[in-house]
Every structure is written in C-alpha cells, then in structure tokens.
C-alpha cells in the first residue's frame, strides 16, 4: 500500500457553491468540487479523453461534465460515461469548514472503476 497523505485545502468558501477548483499537489492537478448539497469530492483534474480541465466543468447529479467534449465522470467512483475512461478519485471531507483530502501519490494504483 502506498502512503496516504492528509492535506488541508483551506476553507470551504475558497470554492464557490456548486463549482470546482483545481489544486496542484506534488505536480498533480486535482479538481475539488463543492456540491450544493454540501458534499465535497475530489478527482483527478485531467480528462482522460483529450486532457480537458475537469475543474471547469458543470457538476450535478453526482457527476462532472468535461468542458471540452462533454464526457461525464462520476465524482465518487471516477467512472466515465465513455468506457473505459475513468479518473482517479480521492477521499475528501469537511471538518469545521476546512477541506481535507486523503492524497495518494500518482503512482498508487487506487483507480477503482
């Protein structure tokens, strides 16, 4: 098992309601989304199709839509609408208004979809 690093991403207000924001951690871009239902989710930012920035996509119904060609990705499982595309997901949580994610470096094989 690879080590998991718990990372503080700052106050939840840093991400506007219903939108995503991209954080660069150890050279890897991670898109973190703040759902209107209060959920926080984190996935790999780079769309496996043609590298669209997923943090800029519209979210809803537990999915994000890539702004470039509209492929969809499940924010919990990372599973894409066009098989076999999928993205890495990270556990994310909200504690006292602060976002934390459990980050595993890119080499880790935690893609589960």
């Amino acid at each position: 098992m690879n080590k998991i690093i718990r990372i503080n991403l700052g106050p939840v207000e840093g991400i506007p309601m219903g939108q995503g924001h991209c954080f660069r951690i150890e050279g890897e871009d991670i898109a973190v989304f703040r759902g209107r239902d209060g959920s926080i989710s984190a996935i790999e930012n780079t769309c496996p199709h043609l590298k669209g920035p997923l943090a800029e996509g519209i979210i809803g119904d537990g999915k994000v839509v890539c702004p470039l060609h509209g492929h969809r990705f499940d924010l919990k499982t990372g599973k894409g609408s066009e098989t076999p595309e999928c993205v890495r997901t990270f556990e994310a949580s909200l504690e006292n208004g602060t976002i934390f994610i459990a980050y595993t470096p890119e080499s880790a094989e935690n893609v589960h979809c």
């Binding site: 080590k3 690093i5 718990r6 990372i7 503080n8 991403l9 924001h21 991209c22 954080f23 660069r24 951690i25 150890e26 871009d29 930012n45 943090a55 980050y103």
Partner: peptide, 12 residues
C-alpha cells in the same frame, strides 16, 4: 489557474 498546495507541513 491551479492553486499550488504545499504538502510537507500537513503530511502524514
């Protein structure tokens, strides 16, 4: 653009 996050002090 992407916001740089320093990992060291929060790690592990």
């Amino acid at each position: 653009g992407p916001q740089l996050i320093e990992v060291l002090q929060e790690a592990e």
